Amino acid sequence: MNKVMASSSEIHDILNQDEEFKIEYDRLKPRYDLIAQIINARHEQKITQAEMAKRMGTNKSNISRFESGSYNPSLDFLIHAAASLGKKIEFSLQ
């Protein structure tokens, strides 16, 4: 069986040709960029979701839902998540 594989950037380029996809992607990009930064910081420190939850005083399921993008976090949640990793959140309007 011969499978054709495409890279994620190739798939992104194809999908980005659809104007509705592009609009929605651009709308959600800041959210997923921040999630990726927090996941990367957690992985760099070799901290599990359970450990991060313990540091934040929340449940592991909240961390899991946040990292999967299925939870719309409050600003306080984001500040606590960053602080649990020794980081801080910075925002800018552009």
Rank of each mutant, 00 (worst) to 15 (best):
Leu85Trp: 07
Ser70Arg: 14
Lys60Glu: 13
Ile47Ser: 13
Ser70Gln: 08
Thr58Ser: 13
Ala83Val: 03
Ser74Lys: 12
Asp76Val: 13
Tyr71Cys: 07
Ser84Gly: 11
Ala50Gln: 15
His80Ile: 03
Arg65Gly: 05
Lys60Gly: 12
Ala53His: 02
Ser70Trp: 03
Met52Ile: 05
Lys60His: 07
Ala82Gly: 15
Asn59Tyr: 12
Leu75Lys: 10
Phe66Lys: 03
Pro73Ile: 12
Asp76Asn: 12
Thr58Pro: 07
Met56Tyr: 03
Asn59Cys: 10
Ser74Gly: 04
Phe66Cys: 06
Leu75Trp: 11
Thr58Ala: 14
Ser68Gln: 12
Leu78Asp: 14
Ser84Phe: 09
Ser74His: 08
Tyr71Ala: 15
Ala53Pro: 02
Phe66Glu: 09
Ser61Met: 14
Ala82Asp: 11
Ser70Thr: 15
Lys54Ala: 13
Ala82Glu: 15
Ser68Gly: 14
Tyr71Ile: 11
Gly69Pro: 06
Asn72Ala: 07
Asn72Phe: 03
Phe77Gly: 04
Ala50Arg: 13
Arg65Gln: 15
Ala82Lys: 10
Thr58Gly: 06
Arg55Asn: 08
Thr48Phe: 06
Ile47Trp: 05
Arg55Ser: 10
Met52Arg: 02
Leu78Arg: 01
Ala50Met: 11
Tyr71Trp: 08
His80Cys: 09
Glu51Arg: 05
Ser74Cys: 12
Lys54Pro: 09
Asn59Met: 11
Asn62Glu: 10
Thr48Cys: 09
Ser61Gly: 09
Asn72Lys: 12
Lys54Tyr: 00
Arg55His: 04
Leu85Ser: 07
Phe66Leu: 06
Ser68His: 11
Arg65His: 09
Glu51Asp: 06
Lys54Trp: 00
Ile63Thr: 12
Leu75Val: 12
Gly69Tyr: 07
Ala50Asp: 13
Glu51Ser: 01
Ser64Asn: 02
Leu78Met: 09
Thr58Gln: 09
Ala83Ile: 01
Arg55Thr: 04
Ser68Asp: 13
His80Ala: 15
Ala83Pro: 00
Gly57Val: 00
Lys54His: 06
Phe77Ile: 04
Lys60Arg: 15
Ser61Lys: 13
Ser61His: 13
Ala81Glu: 02
Gly57His: 07
Asp76Cys: 08
Gln49Lys: 01
Asn62His: 11
Ile47Pro: 01
Ser84Met: 11
Gln49His: 00
Ser84Thr: 00
Leu85Ala: 03
Thr48Met: 06
Ala82Trp: 00
Thr58Trp: 02
Lys54Asp: 12
Arg65Glu: 14
Ser68Arg: 15
Gly57Ala: 02
Ala53Ile: 05
